[in-house]
Nucleic acid binder design. Structure first.
Lengths: 150, 150
DNA sequence: AGATTTTAGTTGCATCTGCAACCAATCTCA
DNA sequence: TGAGATTGGTTGCAGATGCAACTAAAATCT
């Protein structure tokens, strides 16, 4: 027996399957992240960590706060992810004039890990382009241009 | 003092910041998921759960295995996420002829929650389009066309 | 039929993520 | 200067995710 409830739910489900942006973006994220994690795994780094290493190398000495802004990561997430890498001696924490703030830099061994993982990143990057097209990066960039005010 | 190590690491970091697809896709995912979770939160559902409800409504009675394939979710992830919803009485588990397999359907209350959350989803969908452009869905679809062999 | 392989699902472990509540340091302003 | 607001970071809690190892059931092969 098909109830009115069923019909409504089924129609809604069809609309969502056909249109939901989050559904698509999340699935794309899983697929792409999986490629990078597979390849980087041999180097003992996750794509999340690799990105954080790149950010700290690029911006350091940098506050966790700023990392969170650039990467759109909640401050507590940054706090924890950084701590894991501090434990591994990849990241060093310094104080700053502002007694609240901390400043992060890569250690030598952090830089070594980062650079050593770069070829794996490159391979993942290549495989990803083969899967989703070479212009994915610029497409996503265009989507997010300036816009995340939140 | 700038060492050779520094220079190499810095150059690598710049390339990654400029080009890494995973970096962009993951940030997009966080931004978009955040919008949906904010809006759906009032209904007591996450976007992950909402997507699963839609999938089960649409495909049910359906095996967890198949859910994993369609959504590109690891089987253990499906197992756990489904269990949370079984605990909430949103999803019912049935046996099947194949003694290994299980079959999932939404309960009435699961359908009610799903349908009740639909307006919130619609709002999130609208906000997301405002942020990233209305054609995001089809763009991401094109990226993933047929391709996830994994 | 019996042994081997494959398939579906579960569980232990670890990482990633966000929210709310919290602490300490700084800033604002009356 | 001192009270209140803001800012940077941490912690408790909970969900989302994947891998490896495991169990049970089914399928395959000899």
């Amino acid at each position: 027996m098909t109830t009115k409830r069923d019909q409504k739910a089924q129609a809604t489900a069809q609309e969502i399957a056909a249109e939901c942006i989050a559904f698509r973006v999340r699935r794309l994220n899983r697929t792409v992240s999986h490629i990078y994690d597979q390849t980087l795994g041999a180097q003992g780094v996750t794509i999340s960590q690799f990105g954080l290493l790149a950010a700290i190398q690029l911006l350091g000495p940098v506050q966790p706060r700023e990392i969170g802004e650039k990467l759109q990561l909640e401050k507590s997430t940054v706090c924890r992810n950084v701590r894991l890498m501090v434990d591994k001696k990849w990241v060093q924490v310094h104080g700053s004039e502002d007694g609240r703030a901390k400043l992060l830099t890569l250690t030598r061994s952090g830089q070594d890990v980062f650079v050593a993982a770069a070829p794996a990143w490159e391979a993942a990057q290549k495989n990803t382009k083969a899967l989703v097209g070479a212009d994915v990066g610029s497409i996503v960039d265009r989507l997010l241009e300036e816009k995340h005010s939140s």
